[in-house]
Amino acid sequence: MSTTVLYPLLGAALFALGVWGLLARKHLIHKVIAANFLGSGVFLVLIGLAGRTAGADPDPVPLAMVLTGIVVTVALTALALALIKRYYSATGLDTLEPAEEAEQ
């Protein structure tokens, strides 16, 4: 029973952390990790919902959504890492703004 409250709350906290990381952190790898926090936060909310009717079988629909979401997140992460690698070898930068503007 506690999972139906605990998981969504933890998920919301992870999501908020991810939003902060994505907007506030400058380092591109930090941004990618923050984006994965966003995903994991939403998935935790969905998993919490799947078991919301205590005693009964878990609802398969949120689980299917989580599986689809994981696939999409893996693809997004791979694309982001590939772009960061190309960007780094082209500019030598690990932030979006040129070094003097970035407050690392």
Binding site: L22, K31, L49, L96
Partner: peptide, 24 residues
């Protein structure tokens, strides 16, 4: 492209969180 990608991820994940609450 990276700025676009991060904005796109933020948008999509926020949308999905909304779907989760709506489904709940």
């Amino acid at each position: 492209a990276m700025r676009y990608l991060f904005a796109s991820i933020l948008g999509a994940m926020t949308y999905l969180l909304g779907v989760a609450l709506l489904y709940a």
